[in-house]
Structures are given as C-alpha cells and as structure tokens.
Design a protein around this nucleic acid. Structure first.
Lengths: 304, 304
DNA sequence: CCCGACCCATGCTCTTTTTGTATGGGGTCG
DNA sequence: CGACCCCATACAAAAAGAGCATGGGTCGGG
C-alpha cells in the first residue's frame, strides 16, 4: 500500500467527491478514480458507494479512514523524528572518558551541550585510553576526552582545557604543613604514578630543568586511584586541579610552586573522517568553552 | 513514502547488506540500491553508511527502523480490520424497531446475531414506522422490524414471527373475571387503538366475519402506550402476546378466543438493492429463527 | 604484491505503472 | 429536454521500476 494513495483516499473521503478531491490534489479526476479502484482492489473491499452526486464511504471505507489518519500521522511523526536525529537535534551521543578527566570540565561541557540538544541522550563510557581509540575507530564512541594523547592514524584531537598541578599529600606528611610545595621538596618523597603517566609527561620539561628524578613508589590505574592511595598513606601524588573535587579522608592538596608554568592538558579526540552533525556540535561546544573559560582558567585557577 | 520501500529498507537493515537483502526480496541488487537511495533522498537523510562488507545503519536509519516496524504492523492491522468490516465480521449494524416489536423476539434475534458476529456493534433505533422507511432508503438503518408494512418502492419485507392476540384489561373490568375473552364480549367495550393500527389491520378478517365494529375510546402512539392506558383505566386493548412481557399495575391479560385463527405478524423490511454481507447475515438469522421457532409459536403459544 | 571475490554505485535498456486528454453513460435540475 | 455534473474508460505520453553489464573500492589468500 502506497501512502500517497492513502492521502488521496483521505481527501476523497473528506470531499465526498472524486472530482473535487482531484482538484484539491492537483491531479485530474481519472487517475484519482483509478487510484481509488486499485486501493479497493488491493484490499479486496469496496471503499465508496458511487452516487449521482459523488461518492460515499462504505463502512469498510469509514474503517479505513480512521486508520488512514493514524497511519499518515504516524509516518509524518516518524519522518520528523528521523530528520531530527539526522540533524543532531535528537538521538544519542557516545562519549569516552577516563578517570580524572571526568572530574574536570566534562560535566559543565555536557550540561551546555545538553542545553542546546535536549533530545540527545548523552552516554558516557568510562574506558581506558587505548580502548577509547578502538571505540573511536569502530564508531562506538564519537568523541573521547583524555589528557595526554599520542598520535593515532585517522584520529585528531584538540586542546579543551589546561589546569595547574597540585600535590596530594597524606595529612601525616610533614610537607602538609607548608602552604605550597616546591619540586625540590619532593626529591625524596615516594610518588604514586598512574598507568598513562599523564602528569609525568606533562611535567617532563619541568623535571628535566630541575634534574628531578621521581621516586615511583606505587602505580595506580588512574589519577583518582592515585589520590585514593595517597589517602591510604602509600605516598604522594602530583594531580591536576580538578582532582580537588574529590573529598577523601586524610588527603590535603597544596599548589605546586614552579618557576616555569606547568599545566596539564585535557584533549578531546575524534576521527578525522567523521563529520556527523552531532560531533561538530560537540566540538562547537568545546570551542565555545575554550573561548570562554580557557584564558582565565590558565591564568588564575578558580577552584580552591 | 511507499510501504514497499519501507519493507525493502527493513530487510536491508536486517541483512546489513544490499545484495543479500535483494536476494531475499527476489530482486536484483541495483534496483534495491536505488530504492534505498530514493528513500534517503525523500527523507533528506543518510540511512546507511556504506562499508566494504555491506551497509550499516546510521543513527537516523536506526530511528527509521524502529518506526518502520510499527508502521508496517499498523498498516497490516488496519487492512485486516477493514477486511473484517467488509465481510461483516466487524463493524456496526443499525436496526430500526418501534414500540411493541422490541418486546417481541428482537432481543433473542439480536442475541443470536451477536453470537456469530461478536465484533459487530448493534445499534437499535426506536423510530416510528414512516421514518424507518426513510432511514432505510437513506441507509441510516439496514433493516427495520415492524408489524404491518404496506408496500414501498425498493423495499421488501419478510415475515419473522406470528403471535396470538390477548386482551389487556384493567383489573376493575368485570371481564377480568373470565379466563378468556370472546370477540362478542368486546362489542360495548371502549377500546384503545394505536397509531399504526397494526392489531386492527391484523384482525380485519375476524372483525368482518363477526360484523364487529370496535368502539375506539382513545388513541395511543404504540401498543406499549396503549397498555399503559389500560393500566390507567382508559379502556381495553387488543395486544400481541409479546406485550405480556410488560408488568404493569392493574393490568390483566386474557387470551382472545376466536373461531378462526387470528395472529399478528412481525416483519422485517430492507432495501431490495442492498446486498451487504451484514444484511444477508441478519436475514439468515431471521430465517433460522423462522425455521426453529415459527411452527410451534404459531400453533401453541409458549408464553403464559 | 597482485589477483580473485565481494561489496555498492551507475549507465543503459526494456517493461510496467502512472498521468493527462478525450470521451461516454447516467443522473439531476431548471 | 437540454445543460450540467458525476464517475468510468480508452488511449497515448511520461515516469518509475527492474534487470543486465560494468566500474571502483576493500579485503584475504596465494
């Protein structure tokens, strides 16, 4: 059954006349007559009784009319929704994040994205970095937020956010008495590294300049885990400012005082060949955030 | 949007391959490719991403797939119901009745009709005889049940039921003491006639034979109204047996003893040119009723 | 590294469907 | 009784659909 025929039928039923309906439909009367005939033939049912002044619905025709309105509305609703999905006004966006990145500006970013895309379901996937790259390639996620990102084929990334470093100390550590920590203070301090070494990579220039050789006491899966280990007394950790959102027992945070600026980055990564509307909208969000928030965030940290 | 295209799309989405889908659809691959293309063009939306091993749904395509199943099911449901309406298995039947005819076998008849047509809504219209004829002509009712029916153009009728006559007497009437009433007993009795004179017409042979001239004291709209007037003491009425179903205060019913059989008929009337399935089914019901009930009813009345 | 297998897209032709024009039969109204 | 309006049909032109042949691309195996 053709939906166009259904519409022809609806108009004919409304006009109670094939000629008038044809006029309204901007076709001539004979084709419409045959459309009605073939619809009747297809259903094996007489839809109209032909009178001298026009046509009149049979009971079966009246039954079809009821359904026809619903079906037609159903289809229009569907096409509308599909268009919305295609233009990124509705649907779903899958985002990869990992560990401390989540504590960073992601919540704010997603909130501003959701504000302009109320019908898009946002799905966060908390996955290690390497698997995010795979997921990006396979299209299981559209964009990934990570700190340090090496080069991958067909993947590009842009800087979202930079934040200063803090030292996470166990309360019992004598250094906790200081208001800020210098790199030299950490020379004999057992440090907790994490899997991706985002911090150490970010600090490599600083470390080199000071000939600083970190004493790695423990390895943690991510920076949140590292901070939990600090809480447990396993050592000290260098963490980005956003970790300060964590409230853990026996952990104090002190700014890392450095002679050269040392910031840790957050990037977002996506496939070069992906140009879906949803991705572009998300990147627009990120860039708007960069414009609005990056300069002050880099200069004067807002969190305490 | 053509529903055939929707089915093509569904199969393609299921097979994740245009070639395989084409095979399943018993067409070759190029036409299917173009169907998908024109569907995409019509919606202004990319439905599949083409890969080296086949095709994969986009988000918009997935959205369409969900709706497509519903729409397709909706249409099949509708066609099924329309066919049921057309074959008289569902829909609605409008029936005209008037006054005492309703008290007759109509309830039984409708019950047996409903038993075989559970999805047909039965609508009873209580309308005077003349308006029933108009309603029949206009198709507002499909069949009418009436007692005496003169000839009308394009209308035919058949006998449904015959029943004996009773005399409805007010309790205070001396004749109420008799177990049965003879026609001669009514010679000086004020009688209540009704609009259509169904009873007087049914009795005209009997009246003539006995040179009986009824004394018409009152006129009532129908036989039920006549019986109510008997209850009010306005006179005596000749009524068909089915009126005995009425329980009215101060009214007693006595059989009318006659030397020749005198029965009053119930007919059903319908348009000669109407041959809808519903009408024929209803007539089948009536005829089955005639076969089963008419002989005993005519010979030995069952009601007391 | 190339070759065959498989995928989708496209150009071309033939068939089927759909459309418009012209016309006819039947009913209604002045 | 003739003008008028309705629906149905015949016929030709236009459009859409289906199949065949073919091309570009990717993936695996020799």
């Amino acid at each position: 059954m053709d939906v166009r025929r259904l519409k022809y039928f609806i108009v004919t039923a409304e006009e109670r006349s094939i000629s008038r309906a044809a006029e309204r439909l901007h076709i001539t009367q004979p084709p419409l007559t045959r459309h009605i005939q073939s619809l009747e033939e297809e259903l094996g049912v007489l839809l109209f009784t032909r009178t001298s002044w026009g046509v009149e619905l049979t009971q079966a025709g009246a039954a079809l009319l009821k359904h026809a309105h619903n079906i037609s509305a159903h289809i229009e609703l569907a096409t509308e929704q599909i268009r919305r999905v295609a233009t990124g006004q509705a649907g779903r966006i899958d985002i990869g994040v990992f560990g401390s990145a989540m504590l960073s500006i992601i919540p704010k970013l997603l909130r501003s994205f959701s504000a302009t895309h109320p019908d898009v379901k946002v799905v966060l996937h908390n996955t290690p970095k390497e698997r995010q790259i795979g997921a990006l390639h396979q299209g299981r996620i559209l964009v990934a937020f990570d700190r340090y990102l090496p080069e991958f084929p067909n993947i590009t990334s842009e800087l979202v956010y930079r934040e200063p470093l803090y030292v996470a100390l166990n309360q019992s550590n004598p250094l906790a008495q200081q208001t800020e920590i210098k790199l030299d203070d950490l020379r004999n301090e057992p440090l907790i590294d994490e899997q991706d070494q985002s911090v150490f990579i970010a600090c490599r220039t600083l470390f080199k300049r000071h000939s600083f050789e970190p004493i790695v006491a423990q390895k943690a899966g991510d920076l949140i885990a590292a901070t939990i280990m600090v809480s447990g007394g396993f050592g000290t950790a260098l963490v980005p400012e956003s970790i300060l959102n964590l409230q853990l027992p026996n952990v104090v945070f002190r700014p890392l005082a450095t002679d050269v600026e040392c910031l840790i980055d957050l990037h977002c990564a996506y496939r070069k060949d992906e140009d879906s509307r949803l991705l572009n909208d998300m990147l627009d969000c990120v860039r708007a955030y960069q414009r609005d928030q990056l300069p002050p965030a880099a200069g004067t940290p807002t969190a305490a």
